[in-house]
Design a binder for these strands. Structure first.
Lengths: 403, 403
DNA sequence: TTGAATTTGTTCTAGTCAAGAACAAAATAG
DNA sequence: CTATTTTGTTCTTGACTAGAACAAATTCAA
């Protein structure tokens, strides 16, 4: 255990606020509403935000001047009275989303609404070194930008890395599957591209993606659990915000102890969720390649053999134990299951829910829903892009898009 | 599982903000600084809050008019230059803290700084019914107010209940040790006393108490674990705010699954932390009464018998498993152990830390500290009072103290 | 003891912000 | 074509914070 004095953090609770921050907050409120709703009339924005018509007018003028919002006259009017302008996030601003895995790296160009408008995959047959993959990413970004028909302004780059990331500066502390240790990835990519870079853990970004664009849209408290080839991770949304913890390492939900079993996870810890639910067991039992997700879906949709049934039931019980714990800890509205855990849910929904609710207290259990994540393969990259998008949305005046 | 649509919550992220809220926020910032620091000069307030001297001047005038702050001229001046006024929270405003247990209920008068200035215990040989204990509390409040030498203005009543509490309205959903079910305690006490009432879970309030007044003062991310005669509970502070969850039931940290064991906790769940660390085992082994905390301290300070050693080691291992999980989930700066768990820590600190850090990832573990809670027996009641205090501090204009 | 330097409180002004009123614009309904 | 309804725009008002200028209260040095 450490002996030095713990680091205290001063909250913004004690910081003074002035008119500038009011304006910034109100601009962000409009942008947040637009990102949640695709397009809204001015009068709807006024109603939803609680602000006056005249204030909305001023704010919209400013957002249009910043190039973040575009307005059109409505095609059809269903009400009587003067028709209200329809506003939506500008399609001329975009961000890059990057997802780094051991065998490939995806780079996508994503609009502020979360739509992928261009995409390219960098294959890495050997494990990529940070400097090497950064050069490839920078090149790919150039290519993607050059092949766009209309000029785009870029808000930044969001990157998903399978490891422990210090959010403050995008330092990759440890990424076991990439064999990266203490790689200052964020600052390196920032230097290589000149764009603001935001780095996060891949499973955590799955959670923010589902929250921003997927099954958890509009919810304030969710727990997201994900299993992929690199183990089990997750992310938690608390009061609408990602649970970050002291330095951004929170959300390692695969490394919770749920059993006395001596079996070890990829970090060498025994009895954890990740040590016990090993998706490769099921893939092997069904005779599938380790990353054949489609094959898994079709195989699980059909009647299972005895061995596969046993694995499924065992894993349902284990997953249920973790779900129970997280329900009691977080009192979420929604627990989302992604990757292989979503497949377990789809195949064994009733039993999984039954096992889970056996050990959830009545009060936190009463409005709790368990669902499968819905974003699929682009989930993580959308979450990564979301990092850059939300940075832009939260500080529209200070961080105006470059290019 | 439920079939109705999950409840979504709209965050204040999308709500417009105006000048009124700026003032309210800045007043709250000053009060928060004063509650963290007991007394501060005006110039220190300006530095810490980042606001201008002139703004501080206006704010202090308003806070004095509200009767929430008092200022004195400093006794000694160490600097050259005009001496700055020394401000502190007014001692003429107080709140009531109430802690309800099965055998007794404590009612305390607590200043805004968290000092207990008067206290009275209501004994309840039989389990108290809600209506009955409310009458006793109302009477005790009258008595405590009448016996004060100087007149006090009262900001509200904070109540700690050992059960699942809906924070929004203080509804006690279930309090097994009191045998209360769906008791609208908050609104009942509000009606009986005419004061604003805030109700919370007792273990959760232990966390907020340590955060506001105790070992976790100034930290932003902490996990608090507590064991008492009614089982194991806890509370989590995330980014300086209590983790509430969708309806306020978050923080049931005793009901996390850590083992395959069939032993059951007080809610009938098997394999949970509460089911496995039973403090009565140790009390019985040492020949102590179930609530003899002092006896436990002295007994644990001396060499233990073989059986007690075995219990201690077993419980250390189990507690360590939970600590590991919470460190990986929350990445806190501090994990605090209260009640019997604090005693385990004191008796077996080295081994406990060793067991715990075996299964904590390197990054979340590196600035993590494990400590014993320091507030002792008045912890919960201070947390309860803290509910009313923070309500007053956060909305100083709207909720001005009554009486 | 006196005056310079320093720090802080107070007052006044300037600039920004949101709300609301008044008015203009653009649709529907008859 | 006119009345009604709804929305956008403009102008005024009130509230807020920041900053400048000045006054007040201390220390330090001569």
């Amino acid at each position: 255990m450490k002996t030095s004095a713990p680091t205290k953090s001063v909250s913004s609770q004690t910081q003074g606020r002035n008119n500038d921050q009011v304006r910034e907050h109100n601009l962000a409120a409009i942008l947040t509403l637009l990102s949640q709703n695709k397009s809204l009339t001015r009068s709807a924005l006024a109603t939803l935000s609680g602000m006056n018509r005249s204030t909305i007018s001023v704010l919209m003028t400013e957002l249009q001047a910043l190039g973040l919002v575009s307005e059109i006259s409505p095609d059809e009017t269903l009400q009587k009275g003067r028709p209200s302008f329809v506003a939506s996030l500008s399609s001329e601003v975009a961000v890059f989303g990057v997802n780094i895995e051991s065998k490939f790296t995806d780079v996508c160009l994503v609009t502020l609404s979360g739509e992928i408008i261009a995409s390219q995959r960098i294959s890495t047959p050997k494990l990529p070194a940070p400097q090497q993959i950064i050069e490839s990413i920078a090149q790919t970004i150039e290519v993607l930008l050059a092949t766009q028909s209309k000029p785009l302004r870029i808000g930044g780059i969001g990157v998903a890395v399978p490891g422990q990331i210090r959010l403050a500066d995008g330092l990759v502390r440890l990424a076991p599957h990439l064999r990266w240790v203490e790689a200052p990835f964020g600052s390196m990519l920032e230097e290589a591209t000149g764009m603001p870079v935001f780095v996060g853990n891949n499973a955590t970004l799955g959670a923010t993606a589902e929250h921003a664009f997927g099954a958890a849209k509009g919810y304030s408290d969710i727990v997201y659990l994900y299993s992929g080839t690199s183990g089990i991770g997750g992310g938690v949304i608390v009061g609408g915000e990602l649970l970050r913890g002291a330095a951004g390492y929170a959300g390692e939900l695969g490394h919770v102890v749920i059993s006395d079993s001596p079996s070890e996870d990829y970090s060498g810890f025994h009895g954890t969720l990740e040590s016990l639910i090993r998706q490769e067991d099921m893939f092997a039992c069904l005779g599938l390649a380790a990353d054949d997700e489609r094959g898994l879906e079709t195989a699980l949709a059909q009647p299972l053999g005895i061995e596969a049934q046993a694995i499924l039931e065992s894993q349902s019980r284990l997953l249920a134990a973790a779900i129970s714990s997280f329900a009691n800890i977080f009192n979420p509205q929604l627990i989302l299951l992604g990757g292989y855990l979503g497949a377990i849910y789809a195949a064994d929904q009733t039993r999984l829910a039954q096992f889970a609710f056996e050990r959830i207290l009545s009060a936190p259990g009463e409005n709790l829903h368990i669902r499968r994540a819905e974003l699929g393969p682009n989930q993580i990259i959308k979450g990564a892009a979301g990092l850059a998008i939300s940075a832009l949305i939260r500080a529209p005046k200070s961080s105006s898009a470059i290019l």
